[in-house]
Design a protein around this nucleic acid. Sequence first.
DNA 1: TTCTCTGTTAGAGA
DNA 2: GTCTCTAACAGAGA
Length: 275
Amino acid sequence: MPELPEVETVRRGLEKMVLGDTIEQVSALYPKIIQGDPKNFCQLLKERKILSIDRRGKYLIFNLSGELSLISHLRMEGKYFVKSSSDPLEKHTHVVFSLHGGKQLRYNDVRKFGRMELVPTSQKFEVSGIKKLGPEPTKAAFDTSVFYHKLNQKKKVVKTALLDQTLVAGLGNIYADEVLWLSRIHPETPSYRLNEQEVKLLHDNIIIELAKAIRAGGTTIRTYTDAFQHLGSFQFELHVYGKKGMPCERCGASIEKIVVGQRGTHFCPVCQKVK
DNA sequence: TTCTCTGTTAGAGA
DNA sequence: GTCTCTAACAGAGA
């Protein structure tokens, strides 16, 4: 499911619904979601208050009382929502956080790829995965010339490079295709062939597009919902993802779908030429 | 029925 | 180090 805009939308929803709540008890119905000992995980969370909720790349970080943080990655289809403890459990709910006052924060994940981990708050950015992340895609953090030099050193094609979270954090398969179309760059262009001007354009489009998608509450293609179980609306603003065979909005050519780095990749064969 | 596809990433092997 | 491929899993749609 989620790329950066969807995770950010989930984070904002959770802030509204569970910030300040205290965990009474936790049950891990599908323990493989949890890194480390699941019993220990459930035990450690008891009576912790949710003080703040951060995001880094596609990772959610719940900061809890007693200097403990819960790192959560939704991978393909992970979802959070809040229900009353009296509501029947959904089919794919795998971790239940019972909060004082009768609410439950439920983690639901059809494909069971999501992962959770507890770490001391002081080490929340040091866990594997987060430690290796590149800059957030914001004007303040994401530097064009650093991006250019990193792309320049890579042998991969640009689409694959964009999915590499160490160059810039947060892009996934949908937004990678979208920013390449916006920048008129063919997804199979070797990343070292991009000149500074093209990289600047790509860089700016990444910042603009992810911010726009956050404003739209993310993209719902099949199953994504935020913590309120609302759909996103950015799917109505996509230009190429999922548009195979439809006319390019710029030139009218038929959008093609190919496989790049084992991922479905959409592009316009006329506006996006390989260099 | 059976096959292919799906918003991710860690880890193995070259 | 760097790159590529696979596995983890379930369901929708052809």
